[in-house]
Simulated assay, not measured.
Amino acid sequence: MFNTPYKFNYLGHTKTKTEPFNKLHKFAFKCRFNHRYIVRVEEYENLVFVVKFYLKNHENSDKKYQLLSGFNDVARVISTNIEIMFWLYQKNDLSLFGFIGANSEDEEVAMSKRFKVYSKVMLRCFSPNKFFHRKSSTNSAYLLLNKKHIETEENLEELIKEMFIKYYDMSL
């Protein structure tokens, strides 16, 4: 179903004191149509990484995560984001991940098309032997909870869910 990912570049990270996350990691890649994508990975406490991406041309839009490129290149773009997640996981095998399948302008937040696609892909790419898969269809939110990490700290899953609820204004 998914093609070879694009080669991505790690642009580095910045530490922040004004945002709820501790670090912002930035990545970039170009698609086959020579358009640039930006991947923002917000790193929160407890090694929680929240992955977001958008087309560079949409960077100044308030709806940058909702807009579609129209390139019909979704498989390779998602594959590249997954490769970035694997890259982070290789850096620290206690990493946990989260994302929201943003709704397009003409659809409801619940069960967005992106969420449906991402949910299927995550089950294929992240083994249930290593990760708990937690979904909130109402919010189109997805958490990949690293079993190795979750089992080392009591109530960690609840802390992560509370963080998502607080910073992303949702219920899980």
Rank of each mutant, 00 (worst) to 15 (best):
V41G: 01
F115V: 02
V121A: 03
K135E: 11
N46Q: 12
W87K: 05
V77Y: 02
T138W: 05
L11R: 11
Y167F: 08
E45T: 11
K161M: 12
K15W: 07
I100A: 12
L47K: 12
V109E: 10
T14P: 07
Y65G: 10
L143P: 07
F21N: 05
P20L: 11
Y6G: 09
K91S: 10
T80S: 09
V117Q: 14
K7F: 08
N81Q: 10
N129D: 10
N139F: 00
H25L: 14
S140N: 02
V77A: 04
C31H: 07
L156P: 12
D62Y: 01
Y6C: 08
M1I: 08
K15P: 09
N129K: 11
F131W: 01
F27Q: 05
H35I: 12
F53L: 15
L24H: 01
V39I: 11
L11C: 11
N60Q: 11
N155V: 04
D106R: 07
Y6F: 05
T152V: 10
H58S: 13
N60A: 09
K130G: 04
E83P: 00
D93W: 00
R40V: 02
E43Y: 00
V51F: 08
Q66W: 01
K64M: 10
Y44N: 04
P5W: 00
L68S: 15
N146R: 01
L11W: 10
N103M: 08
F97D: 06
V121D: 10
S104W: 00
E151P: 14
K166W: 06
L67S: 09
E105T: 13
F164K: 10
N81H: 02
E162M: 06
Y142N: 02
T14M: 09
F21K: 00
L11Y: 08
G98H: 05
F53G: 14
M1V: 13
E151I: 06
N9S: 14
L123D: 05
E108N: 13
E154S: 11
N81P: 03
I165M: 14
T152R: 15
G98W: 03
N155T: 05
K26I: 10
K17N: 07
F2Q: 12
H25Y: 04
F8R: 01
D106P: 03
R36F: 10
L144G: 10
K130N: 06
K30G: 05
A141N: 09
R134I: 15
D169W: 02
E42R: 07
N60W: 04
L123K: 06
L88R: 00
E59C: 05
P20S: 15
K135A: 09
L11Q: 14
H35G: 05
E43F: 00
P5G: 12
N92Q: 08
F21M: 06
W87L: 04
E43L: 08
I82Q: 03
V48M: 15
G70T: 03
K116G: 08
